[in-house]
């Protein structure tokens, strides 16, 4: 399986996302922001960082990168896409996910090891977790406060599209403690904490982050075998 990792100018965790994909057993393929060719990858990770210096608004410029046009099209067609941190911001700016990420409520960048509760496990990126499972993943962001209007938040909860919530403390003020969400089809996931930094005992607080990457491999294997992505109804 080939997982593409996009590098925008200012992407920082792109190498780490590629490493995580490799550790999970995939082939990591680096994608360049200026190249619309997806090189036949089976899934895409939009990594953390400060794409285009976070100028204008986090993710607002990246959303118009040539590679994003291809990714937006492919995601609407079912390609599994994971946006981590800045990648989550890009997905919101691209309207693949609802809502927005705003300045942390306490106005500081915050980096800590954060407990999450996985809620929705019927997505391409979370199917290897169990519902209610608590996982420990580093969070590090300055603008990670998830906001949306009440109707959207209610709909996300009603449709089981909140994939994880912050537990034992909310690090940035996100509404309803939301750490990550998915689209209606379950193939596009955005998450603020960094699963790619919890994939090795030597460098991470846990190995919990691997679950996101093994999930997509499982979803892809299922899709190959059954002709359908795991992202749909289960």
């Amino acid at each position: 399986m080939r997982i593409g990792v996009v590098t925008f100018p200012g992407s920082l965790d792109d190498g780490d996302a590629a490493r995580a994909a490799r550790i999970a057993g995939a082939e990591a393929v680096r994608l360049w922001h200026g190249d619309p060719d997806l090189h036949g990858v089976d899934a895409v990770v939009l990594p953390g960082g400060f794409s285009y210096g976070d100028y204008l608004r986090c993710g607002a410029i990246a959303r118009f990168a040539p590679v994003m046009e291809s990714i937006i099209d492919a995601a609407r067609g079912g390609l599994p896409v994971l946006g981590i941190c800045n990648g989550f911001q890009v997905l919101c700016e691209a309207h693949l996910l609802p809502g927005a990420l705003t300045r942390n409520q306490h106005l500081h960048f915050r980096n800590r090891d954060q407990w999450l509760k996985v809620e929705s496990t019927n997505t391409a990126w979370t199917n290897n977790f169990t519902g209610g499972q608590e996982i420990l993943i580093p969070v590090k962001n300055g603008e990670g406060c998830y906001v949306a209007d009440a109707k959207t938040l209610d709909a996300l909860e009603a449709e089981g599209r909140v994939i994880a919530r912050y537990v034992r403390g909310n690090p940035n003020g996100s509404q309803r403690d939301i750490a990550g969400i998915t689209n209606e089809a379950g193939n596009v996931v955005g998450i603020m904490p960094h699963p790619e930094h919890a994939v090795e005992a030597l460098t991470g607080p846990s190995l919990d982050g691997l679950g996101f990457f093994t999930s997509v491999l499982r979803a892809l294997a299922g899709a190959t075998a059954g002709g359908q992505l795991a992202g749909g109804q289960q």
């Binding site: 800590r112 407990w115 420990l136 906001v147 034992r168 309803r176």
Partner: peptide, 27 residues
């Protein structure tokens, strides 16, 4: 932050912790 129109459900309100969580992880 004000959640427009939506009642804040139990346990999911916007709060920031007063006490530090334990550092370190389980593994």
């Amino acid at each position: 932050p004000v959640e427009v129109e939506a009642p804040v459900s139990e346990g999911r309100s916007v709060t920031l912790e007063l006490t530090e969580p334990k550092p370190g992880g389980p593994i």
